[in-house]
Design a protein around this nucleic acid. Sequence first.
DNA 1: CGTTTGGTTGACGAAGCTCAAAGCCGGTGG
DNA 2: CCACCGGCTTTGAGCTTCGTCAACCAAACG
Lengths: 249, 249
Amino acid sequence: MNAAPTLAPMLRKLRLWVSLDAPQEQALLDLPHTVVALEKQRVIVREGDDVTHAWLVLSGYCVRFKYVGSGARQIVSIHMKGDLVDLQNALLGVADHSVQTLTACKMATLPIEHIRHLSDTDPMIKDALWFDTLVDGSIHREWVGNVGRRDATTRVAHLLCEFALKLDAIGLDQHDYELPMTQDQLADATGLTSVHVNRVLQSLETEGLIERVTARSVLIGDWKRLAAAGDFHRDYLHLDTIKRRHEYR
Amino acid sequence: MNAAPTLAPMLRKLRLWVSLDAPQEQALLDLPHTVVALEKQRVIVREGDDVTHAWLVLSGYCVRFKYVGSGARQIVSIHMKGDLVDLQNALLGVADHSVQTLTACKMATLPIEHIRHLSDTDPMIKDALWFDTLVDGSIHREWVGNVGRRDATTRVAHLLCEFALKLDAIGLDQHDYELPMTQDQLADATGLTSVHVNRVLQSLETEGLIERVTARSVLIGDWKRLAAAGDFHRDYLHLDTIKRRHEYR
DNA sequence: CGTTTGGTTGACGAAGCTCAAAGCCGGTGG
DNA sequence: CCACCGGCTTTGAGCTTCGTCAACCAAACG
């Protein structure tokens, strides 16, 4: 009885973009890698670093972020099991942003040259990885709009919805979850202060949109109303299959 | 005496990411396309549309943007000559954002299936296009930080710097240029109101960071100081060559 | 248990928004 | 060539949302 292959969580999303046959999946699973257990709040890539590995989240949660001149921090994305964090940095060679764990994480590091080699030999796999980075781009665009044009309550609600939907995509309960972030980190993700995030969460609770048993637990009572409050529309996550229309000849 | 090929502006950026030989460049130039002359303020792609073409800017300026629920608009990127706008939308098949011209533009539409076919036959070209979308992603991340964590003055100065540097990259004068945007559009790009943008521009002028002969002209007196005021560091634009390190075997 | 980390609260202040009016400039048509 | 028009810019006054600062509290952790 074999355990599931270590890199198996990576396949879920890639299967959404292209149809992979068994040898292709095996080639991906066979990518050389090292598994690392990381404690929470650990910075694993720093802006400016030369990057030679991509990181795959096996368990736990992490974020990508940038500092601005004033010293303030902006989180640009949140990642969970199955996410290839930092493929972007690795491909561009030098990190334009940093990566940090939120919780304790198990992660695999994949040397970029092997990813490159595999994607060069199999165009389908290159497409899958390309699409993965394209969807990341789409999420970035949504975030620009979120922090640029939505008020505090909407921003926070939007983030709660995005997180819920991503949890659902990996098979976890989207209606009752534990936020892996402090209110400080929530603030860094939404472009607010932790004080204001605190007040927003309370107001979402008194409005009956969420319940919080502990400070970080989120129980979504009415998804429809929360999504409306968060101006949330799932399309930008491209969670649904986009198989290649174009066939090779 | 042959005029320069229509699609020639597309090559400049792609050459930064990979080394293309003459047949490869020719294949790109030979991509089927239609040239269109568009008036200013024309929306050419709408969020939600099925997208079958990518747009290449041949002259003029355009933006990509999204609406949020309140009706407010967020511009997520600005494009100029040589930019492949909307390769992202075209590859994902359905537009997650809209595209609009700012000025009168000459643009080429390229059917995505031909781009796909070419990039499937030549992995190098696929890499070049992939990298182009990766750099777009990097710019998006910077923008998340810009609207999320910088104050109004810094945001506007940052945008002026980014625009200047992109102009420089296509061989135009970065120190003395005409902004192709109204203050309303500037506001939509920075997450501010046009009234406040107006005041910020005035303060940048009285600080001596820019001069404005007309309302839209920007003359950068002291690049160093403007870049400092805008917390601007060019790295995220990845304007410098990143040739493939990995060779095919 | 003490200590640390993160959450909560209040009072106050400021950056940026709203609304509204007035000015300017370039384009158009008489 | 001039007058008008519409879109853009500029200005002012008042206001709101969110930030700051500082204290206090609660849960977690060693």
